[in-house]
């Protein structure tokens, strides 16, 4: 909008300044936690009175956190893997298939992500009790698979839509049966979407609280549930230290996801 820049500079700078303020508002709660995790005192005081690593040491030494992180991985990896397989299958059928009601199926698959988790949580709780699974790994693992599947479905669908089905048609004329077409053409083409979907699914499972509150037991307690319990009972900077560690891990994973996407997009730019 060059016209705005020329004639209405005040409005333009106003919008820019406003944007800057909102962006700061967006990152402040995350930024506040960082210095707090290095505080030398046990109360939440800002700025921290002194620097220490004691909360990181406490975090590293905590058996609770260690068990919770292990649980989160034990639940997140299989849940994300299962969600990746099922979400990819669903995306293939919905995007490339010729089924009636494909849109409806797509909406149904996305629904668990959009509807409030509390509804699913109180729905799954009695089902898992009936199945005798409550508090076990399979219970929370299956619950997370249902809510993570939409994430994979979305990323793989968008990968599939990013190129014309001509590639698959070409493979077929060249003699590839459906399985070989998938293995040698479709899968390599959607690989970034599948990887990103897996990372999103794992991240989501790693952060999910409400299903974990209902479906896990103290033995299968995940990180968000542990943080939650700690927040409700004691407010020491050890939470801040744990938070920072988890944040760095999450961001690292998402950075990998972002780089995967950018890499493939740059590679595909010249393709018809």
């Amino acid at each position: 909008m060059r016209a705005t820049a020329g004639t209405w500079p005040v409005a333009r700078w106003g919008v820019l300044g406003f944007t800057a303020i909102v962006l700061v508002y967006l990152v402040i709660p995350t930024l506040v936690i960082m210095p707090l995790s290095f505080s030398s005192e046990s109360f939440l005081r800002f700025p921290p009175p002194g620097f220490s690593m004691r909360w990181y040491e406490a975090f590293a030494g905590s058996a609770d956190y260690r068990a919770a992180i292990l649980n989160s991985i034990k639940i997140g990896v299989p849940a994300a893997s299962l969600a990746t397989v099922l979400g990819t299958l669903a995306a293939l059928a919905v995007v490339r298939g010729k089924l009636p009601g494909r849109r409806l199926v797509g909406a149904l698959i996305i629904a668990p992500l959009v509807l409030p988790q509390i509804i699913l949580a109180i729905g799954l709780f009695p089902v898992m009790i009936r199945l005798g699974l409550i508090g076990t790994y399979p219970a929370i693992l299956l619950g997370h698979t249902v809510v993570c599947m939409p994430l994979v479905f979305i990323t793989v669908s968008s990968s599939l839509r990013s190129y014309a089905p001509t590639f698959e048609l070409a493979a077929m004329t060249l003699g590839a049966n459906p399985w070989n077409t998938f293995r040698f053409v479709t899968l390599p083409m959607i690989k970034p979407g599948v990887i990103v979907g897996f990372i999103f699914a794992f991240t989501f499972s790693f952060d999910e609280l409400i299903l974990a509150m209902f479906l896990t037991s103290p033995a299968t307690r995940t990180v968000p549930r542990l943080l939650w319990e700690q927040l409700n009972f004691q407010m020491t900077p050890v939470i801040a230290a744990a938070t920072v560690v988890l944040l760095v891990l999450t961001m690292g994973l998402l950075l990998v996801a972002a780089l995967t996407e950018r890499h493939t997009r740059a590679g595909r730019r010249t393709e018809g």
Binding site: A164, T166, F167, L169, A170, A171, M172, T173, L174, G175, A176, N177, T181, F184, V185, P188, M189, G267, R268, E271, G272
Partner: peptide
């Protein structure tokens, strides 16, 4: 017959060369 059983060759408007394969791999594919 399915396209992969017809044993026809097809050249597409935008060529549809597989971007993840080299030129030689593309030709070797069939």
């Amino acid at each position: 017959l399915a396209p992969y059983k017809r044993n026809f060759g097809m050249v597409f408007q935008n060529y549809a060369l597989f971007p993840h394969m080299t030129v030689a791999e593309n030709i070797a594919f069939p």
